[in-house]
């Protein structure tokens, strides 16, 4: 809620100051992106020009062309790989988290509350603690360098998926009990009630959660770094950091910047289109 307008009118200079600070903040946030785009359109020589040029004298698209056509980089493949991983994780989240959430919200069984607390506790678990044993497990299953390693351990959407279960449970609990009672009178079994009556009711939650999973999966770097070292199986986050294993190539900043732009464009488009859901997720996770 904004303060009373009359207060604002009395303190005009203050509101000018506020806008100056906010614009400064926005500039700080935005500069790396603008700098990245600008540099990605330069050739290797012109990045040494000092003071830096914000708008390149000559716009060079060659860096992008290289990323799509060279034998070293294979961005179409990284995009495809990432899409497969994201889609399957989102699918897993839909099925498994909805079921668990419905169970926790509406069905009664022994140890329900204890189990739910245990599920919630996983929210705080840092991936670093699981790195060694999960890597060992992936080796044991012979899943290193396979999509299975990227998908199956995170088939609840993210590691654990506790957030999705928690959120969907809230949605289910908010639905009127009459829905199930009516379905039961009509002779629906519990699974049938769940699939055809209850699931469609919470579809608004899925948009937010699918975006949550998309964001997490698209940006995930640590886990792919550990379980994938075959460039054919690279996801985008590994692809853009490919140079880093080759220190000599590090001087080609324009190419690196172009690859970063390619890594960021999809997530930024999704963010700008659906920013309402991003913030909604965040606020719900903060206010639980």
């Amino acid at each position: 809620m904004t303060l009373d307008m009359s207060v604002l009118k009395k303190i005009r200079p203050l509101s000018v100051l506020i806008y100056i600070v906010l614009v400064a903040g926005a500039v700080f946030m935005l500069t790396p992106f603008l700098w990245m785009i600008s540099s990605s359109l330069k050739d290797v020589e012109s990045i040494f020009i000092f003071p830096p040029q914000w708008i390149p004298k000559e716009i060079i698209w060659d860096n992008y062309a290289q990323l799509f056509t060279s034998s070293y980089y294979d961005f179409p493949r990284y995009y495809l790989n990432t899409s497969i991983v994201v889609l399957l994780r989102v699918g897993g989240m839909f099925v498994f988290c909805s079921m668990a959430a419905y169970g926790f919200a509406r069905l009664d069984f022994p140890m329900k509350n204890v189990l739910f607390m245990v599920v919630l506790a996983t929210l705080m678990l840092p991936i670093q603690v699981l790195m060694v044993p999960l890597y060992f497990e992936m080796r044991f299953f012979k899943w290193i360098n396979t999509f299975r390693a990227l998908i199956i351990p995170q088939s609840l959407g993210a590691f654990g998926g506790a957030f999705s279960i928690f959120l969907l449970r809230q949605y289910f609990m908010a639905l009127p009990k009459d829905l199930e009672n009516a379905a039961e009178i009509d002779g629906c079994s519990i699974p049938r009630t769940f699939f055809s009556v209850m699931l469609p009711q919470v579809r608004m939650a899925y948009a937010a959660l699918a975006i949550f999973v998309f964001q997490g999966s698209w940006n995930d770097y640590v886990w792919p770094l550990i379980v994938i070292n075959n460039p054919k199986k690279y996801v985008v986050s590994l692809g853009i950091a490919l140079f880093l294993s080759d220190r000599a190539a590090l001087t080609n900043w324009p190419l690196l910047m172009a690859s970063s732009v390619l890594g960021l464009v999809p997530i930024i488009i999704v963010f700008l289109l659906f920013q309402k859901y991003f913030m909604q997720n965040l606020v719900m996770s903060g206010m639980k």
Binding site: M29, F33, M36, I240, A241, M257, S260, L264, I268, F278
Partner: peptide, 13 residues
Amino acid sequence: LPVVTSMAAAAIV
């Protein structure tokens, strides 16, 4: 905006 972007890409920049 920085929150949604990939840390890997941001770190390179």
